[in-house]
């Protein structure tokens, strides 16, 4: 939302209505699913899963101005919940999905109570530590299958078991819903409080609202969305192990969130698509050189993109393209209170 969406005279311009935008996204996804081949469908399912996660990070980082370097932990909680419930207990993966979201939400709420009062550097570190501890737990617990992980994770089914294409539909419906939810929140009158928290915590307190409340809600939302994505991922791919839910995943998620623009929900979706497809392209090119070079080339370019984008367009490419923000003021809130 680079432009100011609401004026005092009237409501949002019609093309910014959250429902219309979400519908448009869904139509594009449907067309994509019908027109593109199976390999693209799988690729775009991954894009959708990351987009789901990144929409939550957008709210927490872009709009509320916080930072999390541990989202892979929540993604993993969702994935392992589905994995454990279907492989160790033979329950429905749907139950696992709900359990995962619930657990992630509760963990985020408790964690948020402890760490959200910390300033940027320390918050980055505390969330990073959470991600690391989660990863250690995935490796060390027996219920998670240790380093070998879990295989044979159950498929979702509604009457019939989900096919690859069904997962695609399911994921993109979830993305559209999440985007609808996020844009509705941001555009609501109460959504102004997100910017209040990002812009000035002191001024927020002076309005009688503890900023930690808003931050914590967004942290919980981002955790639940990450767990949702993780749960669907586990069921779709069928096997998981701790090497998936690492610090590197957390950083890749950050990369996807910032490339599109942290304060643009649909920018985030585009950002994820660009980064993911670029990554695949680089991987393919790298594989031609040597088996190991694929991932390495991807890492190198991802890192450089993050550096370059942050140096020159700290508000993300989509935002820069819309060109409405003065660069400097955006990510840096005015310095603190008193004197």
């Amino acid at each position: 939302m680079a432009t100011n969406p609401r004026t005092k005279e009237g409501p949002l311009s019609w093309w910014r209505w959250p429902s219309l935008q979400a519908l448009a996204l869904l139509i594009i996804a449907i067309l994509g699913g019908l027109l593109l081949g199976p390999s693209w469908v799988s690729e775009l399912t991954v894009v959708g899963l990351y987009a789901l996660t990144v929409i939550g990070m957008n709210l927490f980082m872009g709009y509320a101005g916080q930072v999390s370097l541990g989202q892979a932990g929540f993604f993993g909680i969702g994935a392992y919940s589905v994995g454990i419930i279907t492989t160790q207990y033979q329950f429905s993966p749907w139950l696992g999905l709900l359990a995962g979201m619930l657990i992630a939400g509760v963990v985020a709420w408790l964690l948020g109570k402890l760490v959200l009062k910390l300033q940027t550097h320390y918050l980055a570190l505390a969330t990073l530590a959470f991600g690391m501890i989660a990863n250690v737990a995935f490796q060390a617990l027996s219920i998670t299958g240790g380093n070998s992980g879990l295989t044979g994770i159950g498929n979702f089914s509604l009457g019939v078991s989900f096919s690859n294409t069904d997962y695609y539909w399911f994921v993109w419906i979830l993305v559209a819903l999440a985007a609808w939810y996020a844009t509705r929140m941001v555009h609501s009158e109460s959504g102004s409080l997100l910017e209040a928290v990002r812009s000035s915590e002191v001024a927020t307190k002076l309005m009688g609202l503890n900023p930690d409340q808003v931050k914590r809600e967004m942290f919980v939302v981002s955790a639940i969305l990450a767990a949702l994505a993780g749960g669907v991922y586990a069921s779709w791919i069928g096997y998981i192990d701790p090497t998936v839910f690492t610090f590197t995943l957390s950083i890749n998620l950050v990369l996807m969130a910032v490339v599109g623009g942290m304060r643009s929900v649909y920018g985030a979706v585009v950002g994820v698509g660009v980064v993911q497809l670029l990554g695949q392209g680089l991987n393919t090119v790298g594989q031609m050189i040597s088996p190991a070079a694929g991932g390495a080339l991807e890492l190198t370019v991802y890192g450089l993109i993050l550096v370059v984008v942050m140096m020159f367009w700290p508000n993300g490419l989509i935002t820069a393209w819309k060109g409405r923000y003065r660069q400097s003021s955006v990510v840096s809130p005015p310095s603190a209170v008193s004197d």
Binding site: M61, L255, V258, G303, L304, L306, M311
Partner: peptide, 14 residues
């Protein structure tokens, strides 16, 4: 500060 954190994370990755 947040931008600088992301920059050094990018450097690490690269």
């Amino acid at each position: 500060p947040l931008t600088l954190i992301f920059i050094t994370l990018g450097l690490d990755t690269a």
